[in-house]
Computed example of a mutant assay.
Amino acid sequence: MAGIGPPPKDPSRRARTNKDVVQLRVVQVQPVMQPDLPSFTVMVTVDEQLVTQEFEWPAMTKEWWAMLANHPLSSEFIETDWAYLMETARLHAEFWMGKLSLAAELRLREAKYGFTPEDRARLRIQFAQATEAEVSVASKVRSSRERFGSITLGDELEA
């Protein structure tokens, strides 16, 4: 299975510091609010006859869609983002209804929006709260001598 490569290196650790060949293009956009999951009908076979019935969103897909409202970037999503994610919700629903062959496509679609730490690293997205947490943890780290300095070899043998 082909992947999309390792996450990018930290720029400070790169051997070459070439500038990007293509300049970053900044455009003005108008973000939109998250739409509701749509109601629609699907064709199903009942007693060997095709009938239409209302599509029932699985509970997991409803939770997934609600989770998107809390996505750190959702306040920047435009109509095309929400349309793409709505199509992804349909695949998500089919996946949770047992069509496991959609797992790879679902993973690729979610990766485009930074759903996992690896995806965010590849997209060069870093959450501010994670940075603050790392700083506070790093300041509390003690050296191994401070942590284990009072232990001697004789203490371990007696236990």
Rank of each mutant, 00 (worst) to 15 (best):
A2H: 09
A2S: 12
A2V: 08
G3Q: 05
I4C: 08
I4T: 07
G5Q: 08
G5P: 07
P6W: 03
K9A: 13
P11L: 04
P11T: 07
S12M: 03
R14M: 14
R14N: 08
R14E: 15
T17V: 06
N18Q: 09
D20I: 06
D20M: 08
V22F: 10
Q23M: 05
L24E: 14
R25N: 06
V26P: 01
V27H: 06
Q28C: 07
Q28W: 08
V29L: 04
V29E: 07
Q30Y: 02
V32A: 03
Q34V: 07
P35H: 02
S39K: 10
V42C: 09
V44T: 15
V44Y: 06
V44G: 04
V44N: 03
T45P: 00
V46I: 15
V46D: 13
D47A: 12
D47S: 14
E48G: 05
Q49T: 10
Q49C: 07
Q49S: 12
Q49G: 05
T52I: 08
F55V: 00
F55N: 01
E56N: 12
P58V: 02
E63Q: 11
W64K: 01
A66Q: 07
M67S: 13
A69K: 10
P72N: 03
L73W: 07
L73F: 11
L73S: 11
L73M: 14
S75D: 14
S75R: 15
E76V: 02
F77T: 00
F77V: 00
I78F: 04
I78G: 05
E79R: 12
D81M: 03
W82A: 06
Y84Q: 01
E87C: 12
H92T: 01
H92W: 02
H92Q: 11
A93P: 00
E94S: 12
M97K: 15
M97I: 06
G98L: 05
G98W: 03
K99P: 00
K99R: 15
K99V: 14
L102T: 10
A103Y: 11
A103P: 02
R107L: 10
L108E: 14
L108W: 09
L108Y: 09
R109V: 00
E110M: 14
E110A: 02
A111E: 03
A111P: 00
K112W: 03
Y113W: 10
F115S: 04
T116P: 01
P117S: 09
P117V: 06
P117Q: 06
E118K: 05
E118F: 09
E118C: 01
E118M: 04
E118S: 04
R120P: 02
R120L: 05
A121G: 02
R122Q: 06
L123R: 01
I125V: 15
I125D: 05
A128D: 12
A128F: 14
Q129L: 08
T131L: 12
T131N: 07
T131P: 00
S136W: 08
S136Y: 08
S139A: 13
K140E: 14
K140N: 10
K140Y: 07
K140R: 15
V141C: 14
S150D: 13
S150A: 13
T152L: 09
T152F: 11
T152H: 12
T152K: 12
L153P: 02
L153V: 09
G154A: 15
G154Y: 06
D155K: 05
D155I: 03
E156N: 06
E158Y: 11
A159W: 12
